[in-house]
Design a protein around this nucleic acid. Structure first.
Lengths: 255, 255
DNA sequence: GAGTGGTCTAGACCACACT
DNA sequence: GTGTGGTCTAGACCACTCC
């Protein structure tokens, strides 16, 4: 490493174009790799900046810039005076990190009751296969659950997971776990949900779904289709949520 | 400035707590101030890093960190070899910077037809006043417009603007301008929209709105309530959009 | 006090755009 | 070539946490 510069060796340029990549980007990739293979587990501290600088033969400032970006992407969390930690879904603070639904009257009541309605092994249809980058017919696990706030049903989620990554997942284990679903996936299956893409639209409640959410057939529901990705932008979950938004809203910030 | 440190003078600590603020944050505030008072206009280049470093008696690295953050917040745009520019809504690249609606089948057709249905001076009701941080009864301008994609109506927007900031805004001028609405506000009224908060929910089309969007009464629509802010988080627009999402979706990324 | 991240500096050199 | 932002370094000191 050291003072690698222009015709950069670590950055791939086998057949592609110029492909210059600064040192800190290479360091960033190396750290990400370590996270991916589990050198440091979620919730643990990674090596200190000085240690990493020594390991990669680079200045602390360069390691710093790499960690800055990983931290901005929520893969790492810096804690002054303590160290840099691997982000995790298993913490009180970040419960439901990806759920943007907030109650209308600033109530901070976020004690959801969960009901798992279904969980079964099946095979990927064309649409699910495409979203999860599997082949049609590959094994997938499908589950359905209801979230209630203050006793009222608000979210009906259908989710599909690649069978290969979630071996041994059963309805029973789903029902038994405490805390967020992603925390469970992280601790029990080593699958770390890092980022997600969502597509929102308004739909009419179907005859089957309406009673579950306590609305009449045809009532407007917010449909939220989410594709959740892990390291390397590999899709590991497809989720379709139906939100009953008469007392909650999906909150978003634009910059 | 120079080497100001611990019991920081520039950072306010009149009555509050410790209120330590690093140098680069102070520089950031100073640059933001210059943007706010119009020292550099949208689309123009600001002073170079070296010039700013000299002006503020600070190292280039410190200016750099301040600009890094402003650039991450989309207030500034860096262009290697050229300079750092004030962000603007008046560029082909960033047309409809805050509109997250995308067509279903990856069509990149973004040539919206606009129809202004209404524009009138009125007074703020309780709700509008609260959202815009005005007093009930303060003058506001209300407008209504339709966006069509490929000839089909997709978005029905109602918007409220503080009368004091948009003196001389008429239905005619609204209809005549080319390009994005925010570009028009920026160039003709000096109001720069820099970030926004949105609340999404699903609603049923009203008898009045349904025909405008070409749907039947009661059809599900995506309601998008937006509060747009300028420098200092001052609200300068309230907007309520109704999106017909049978062929479009609201796209979001979660990190 | 020792160790960690956070800030600030000064200087060197690289990549890019204009002229 | 000149000027701009972009990267990298080395060293100093500050703020925070824990022992």
């Amino acid at each position: 490493m050291a003072t690698v510069q222009t015709p950069n060796p670590a950055a791939g340029d086998a057949a592609a174009g110029p492909a210059f990549s600064p040192l800190y980007q290479q360091i960033k990739a190396l750290i990400t790799r370590s996270l991916q293979v589990g050198e440091w587990k979620p919730g643990e501290a990674i090596a200190s900046e000085m240690e990493l600088a020594a390991r990669f033969r680079v200045s602390q400032g360069t390691v710093r810039k790499a960690i800055d970006e990983l931290s901005a992407e929520n893969l790492l969390v810096r804690r002054q005076g303590k160290g840099t930690y691997v982000a995790t879904h298993s913490e009180q603070q970040v419960q439901y990190r990806f759920l943007r639904l907030v109650p209308d009257e600033g109530g901070k009541v976020r004690v959801a009751e969960r009901r798992f309605l279904d969980c079964r092994r099946t095979r990927a249809g064309a649409e699910v296969a495409r979203a999860l980058e599997l082949k049609t017919g590959d094994p997938v696990i499908q589950a359905r659950r209801l979230l209630l706030f203050g006793g009222r049903p608000v979210v009906l989620d259908d989710l599909w997971l690649p069978g290969g990554l979630f071996k041994g997942l059963t309805a029973e284990r789903l029902s038994e776990h405490r805390g967020a679903l992603y925390a469970f996936f992280e601790s029990d299956f080593g699958v770390q949900m890092i980022r997600a893409e969502e597509k929102l639209r308004a739909v009419a409640a179907s005859a089957a779904d309406a009673p579950l959410l306590g609305v009449v057939q045809g009532a407007p529901l917010l449909s939220c289709e989410r594709r959740t990705l892990t390291y390397g932008d590999k899709p590991v979950e497809l989720r379709r949520g139906l939100y009953e938004t008469s007392a909650h809203a999906y909150r978003n910030e634009l910059n």
